[in-house]
């Protein structure tokens, strides 16, 4: 338990710093002790945050929710289907596909940014919601994880039994396999959600209208302006705090689904042994 508490302090400390900092003035941000409150002005900071640029921050939040929410759901479904197929059907080329997926993860995103942008431009999609959403829907890591868990958590016997009962393949996937894979799906959903939310590179390259920006890109724009106008520091930090609080709330909420996943896999293990 001591170990867990020490680790909690380590992990939470920086988040705590962001929260404390969001209550300070720009001057106190640097002038006061970082881990304790100075003159408390969270209300004023929040008002400033949501009023800046005619309330653009709210728009950025909504965009992030759209990109990350829709992107994560679709990416999870797509990865789950692919991972399940790779784990539970044997066909020629299966291992090859799997290796290519793994290799895709090795390529640094810096090298892909320009080609992706040129392709999107060609297709007339640059600077649109789709230009960020479409690439976000592919998660090689998600497919990898889904395959690994489908292989272990979905018993072949269960699939065969369902087939004998006359269930179609799609139905088996949706009603038998997916529930058994729940912990993995929640994990994939969580990872892709946070990954898309924090992705900075893709929207940076694709988007130029501020109205389409997600929170991270918007905050970067503000952060760049601190060089000439330090009051943007306060906007950036308060914005980061709000963004972090929302994400952490989302993480905690998504974790609830783990429990249902647990009981289901408890049910299926009977068939496993």
């Amino acid at each position: 338990m001591t170990f867990l508490f020490v680790c909690t302090i380590y992990f939470v400390l920086p988040v705590y710093w962001v929260l404390v900092s969001s209550t300070k003035s720009t001057a106190d941000l640097f002038g006061s002790f970082g881990l304790w409150f100075a003159h408390f002005r969270l209300g004023a900071n929040l008002r400033q945050l949501f009023a800046a640029d005619q309330g653009i921050f709210l728009r950025w939040l909504a965009n992030s929710v759209l990109y990350a929410g829709l992107g994560a759901v679709l990416a999870t479904v797509i990865s789950a289907a692919a991972g399940y197929a790779l784990a539970k059907y044997s066909f020629r080329g299966r291992e090859a596909i799997f290796s290519v997926i793994l290799a895709g993860v090795m390529v640094p995103p810096t090298a892909l940014a320009l080609p992706l942008y040129l392709m999107m431009s060609r297709a007339g999609l640059a600077n649109s919601y789709l230009s960020v959403l479409l690439p976000s829907m592919v998660s090689p890591f998600g497919a990898y994880l889904a395959r690994v868990y489908a292989a272990s958590a979905v018993p072949d016997e269960l699939i065969e039994a369902a087939r004998i009962d006359g269930a179609g393949e799609l139905r088996i996937f949706a009603r038998v396999a997916a529930p058994a894979m729940t912990p993995a799906l929640v994990t994939i959903g969580l990872f892709t959600f946070v990954g898309i939310w924090n992705n900075f590179f893709l929207p940076l390259v694709m988007l130029s209208s501020q109205n389409l920006y997600p929170v991270t890109l918007g905050l970067t724009v503000w952060e760049g302006q601190t060089y000439r106008d330090p009051s943007f520091y306060q906007l950036t930090v308060t914005g980061a705090a709000v963004s972090a609080v929302l994400l952490i709330a989302a993480v905690i909420m998504l974790q609830r689904f783990w429990r249902s996943g647990l009981t289901r896999s408890g049910l299926t293990t009977g068939a496993l042994r």
């Binding site: 209208s209 724009v221 952060e223 760049g224 060089y227």
Partner: peptide
């Protein structure tokens, strides 16, 4: 006008 990140930040 499109407000983009500063030049050195990717602009």
């Amino acid at each position: 006008l499109d407000t983009i990140p500063t030049g050195s930040n990717g602009g």
